[in-house]
Simulated assay, not measured.
Amino acid sequence: MNIKPLADRVIVAPAAAEEKTKSGIIIPDTAKEKPQRGEVVAVGEGKVSDQGALMKPQVSVGDTVLYGKYAGTEISIDGSDYLIMRESDILAVL
């Protein structure tokens, strides 16, 4: 991938949506929920604090993360879908 996020932004590859429930019921495309889990594929340099110091990101490439349902902006690069979001939109690292 030839994209580098700026500042405290992170690019996440969302996980695939669930195809069927645990009991085996197949979920139609119209009822699938947007995934809230993904893998970090690129990380920016970090945020500059009010004192002028660079604060390094807490996530790194390869981390599996949880994020809010409506977090980030959807982008498409080379036919693959990604989300670009601020590091503060990430809720947890798995």
Rank of each mutant, 00 (worst) to 15 (best):
M1Q: 09
N2E: 13
N2T: 11
I3Q: 02
I3N: 01
K4F: 13
P5V: 02
D8S: 10
R9K: 09
V10E: 04
V10L: 05
I11P: 05
V12W: 06
A15C: 11
A15Y: 11
A16P: 11
A16Y: 07
A17T: 12
A17E: 15
E18M: 13
T21L: 08
T21H: 06
K22V: 00
K22F: 01
S23C: 01
I25W: 08
I25V: 15
I26T: 15
I27G: 09
P28E: 10
P28F: 04
P35A: 08
P35Q: 09
Q36E: 15
Q36H: 10
Q36W: 06
G38S: 10
E39Q: 14
A42M: 09
G44L: 06
E45K: 10
G46W: 01
S49C: 00
D50E: 10
D50G: 13
A53D: 15
A53V: 03
M55R: 07
K56I: 02
Q58S: 14
Q58I: 06
Q58P: 01
V59M: 09
S60C: 13
G62F: 08
D63Q: 06
L66F: 12
G72N: 03
G72F: 07
E74N: 13
I75T: 06
I75V: 15
I77N: 11
G79L: 05
S80F: 10
D81W: 04
Y82E: 04
L83V: 00
I84N: 04
I84V: 15
R86S: 10
S88Q: 03
D89Y: 06
I90G: 00
A92C: 01
